[in-house]
Design a protein around this nucleic acid. Structure first.
Lengths: 148, 148
DNA sequence: ATTGACTCTATACTTAGGTGTAGGGTTTAT
DNA sequence: ATAAACCCTACACCTAAGTATAGAGTCAAT
């Protein structure tokens, strides 16, 4: 449990060694310094949590670039508080929108399941209808639609 | 508004013409037949909704393969009802899990914003902590951890 | 009846996010 | 003290999801 090398980090966080290195190259996680005069790098336990976070966030539709942004919101003593706050608010909006859309699919699936209890025929159940394009997007699209 | 060709579909759904064709090649949307003896394909209005659905679902972290699975749950008179039901249940679980994780990030961001009201120093606010690795995953990982 | 905007097929290129491998050095268990 | 198991750097390769281009045909407005 003591000397955590890259292989253990990888195993604990459920990714491959090469993926850990890839995240290091992309500056998503810190690469610990190599002990002076040869040997292997030792990783702090947090690295595992960081990688798990990255994977979770990816599952939720965030790109590595966006995840880097999310991570940059962490305690950063040099950062301007108001700036962090603002960026956090942008992200919050984004996530709230996603949750709403996700719930749309969720309830569509629930309806689908309910309407298909083993007997009778499924008549209507387009999940597509469940995801109404949000207002903002509609407005944007309207502009582009001009020429029809 | 009558003869909707591929360019109009693209514009209305907010993607490029090549993307529409790409989705056709991948069988995510149907390619309408070419009118006998030359000419352009005419698209039904639904195609636009389909593409919007695809984009939304992508935003939410679904791959095109998964989206195809979601779409296959739509009214399909030939499909075995019990089978559709089962697949829908799998997807529902997946989505419910995502919503939970998303809410984790959401409340972490809310806390971050609250703890940074312009004055005082931000002490603790690791969004990372907010996303606790879910039980199931932890158990899975435990197995693999064996050798430490 | 011609021109500009659009479509068609086919193929090549790009970007993100990894994954694999070669050719070495290091640790650790025996 | 040696072999298996691991690490290191560097670079090549892969898949998903587009995006671009070429070269030819079609349509609609003047």
């Amino acid at each position: 449990m003591k000397t955590m090398t890259i292989g253990k980090v990888a195993k604990k966080s459920g990714v491959g060694v090469e993926t850990v290195r890839f995240y290091e190259r992309k500056d998503l996680i810190d690469q610990p310094p190599k002990p002076p005069f040869g040997g292997f790098r030792i990783y702090p336990a947090e690295t595992v949590e960081h990688i798990r976070f990255i994977r979770q966030a990816q599952e939720l539709g965030f790109s590595l670039r966006e995840i880097k942004e999310l991570l940059s919101l962490r305690l950063d003593p040099t950062a301007d508080c108001a700036d962090v706050r603002e960026r956090a608010q942008v992200k919050l909006k984004e996530i709230t929108r996603k949750i709403t859309a996700m719930k749309g699919i969720q309830s569509a699936l629930e309806k689908l399941i309910a309407s298909c209890p083993g007997e009778g025929s499924i008549q209507v159940c387009s999940i597509i209808d469940a995801i109404e394009t949000p207002e903002t997007t509609r407005r944007e699209l309207k502009k582009k639609e001009k020429k029809s």
